[in-house]
Amino acid sequence: MDISSLYGSSALDSTAYTNAANQTAFKLQDKLNSSDYSKATDDELMDACKQFESYFLEQMFKEMMKTIPESEDTSSSNSQLMDYYKDEMVQQIASDSTEQNSLGLAQMLYEQMKRNYNLE
């Protein structure tokens, strides 16, 4: 049985979408693991925390968007283009939200990391 016949091309698109999200997560994890934050400046530490908050918000928004039903009357190429722009929009909204301290998650992480690395 061919899975694409059950789900159409959206199953293949979701696989590519998942792979792209995993690559972003791996890049962020590599950056966090390769950095020694015990010697980090306040700005570097806050930047890492903001990147994490932005990534967290981006993933949350993308999961929320999955709950919205999609219309089936768009072509495959239009759908891929719309998915690209949706992803770009979500990344920008997550980044803007982080810069405006909307959740405060970055600030909490920053304070916790300062305590953990004895940077106070």
Rank of each mutant, 00 (worst) to 15 (best):
N101W: 05
Q92G: 06
N78H: 05
S79M: 03
A40F: 05
Q107H: 08
M64P: 00
K86L: 06
S97P: 01
S95G: 02
S9Q: 12
F56R: 01
M1K: 14
Q51M: 11
A25C: 06
M108F: 04
D30Q: 11
T41F: 02
T18Q: 14
D83Q: 15
Y37D: 09
S76C: 04
C49S: 09
K62W: 03
Q51T: 09
S95H: 08
M108R: 07
D83V: 04
Q80C: 01
V90S: 04
F61E: 04
N118H: 13
M82V: 03
K86A: 07
E70N: 10
A16Q: 13
K66P: 04
Q80K: 12
S14M: 07
P69H: 04
L57T: 03
K50P: 01
A16K: 14
Y37K: 04
D87V: 09
E63M: 12
L57R: 06
L105A: 13
Q51S: 11
S77V: 13
N22P: 00
S54V: 02
S9E: 11
M89N: 06
A106E: 07
T41G: 10
S35N: 09
S71C: 01
N101F: 10
P69V: 05
M46P: 03
I68Q: 10
L32F: 13
K86W: 02
C49E: 00
L6S: 09
K50S: 07
M113A: 12
D83N: 15
K27W: 09
T41K: 10
L28M: 12
A94W: 00
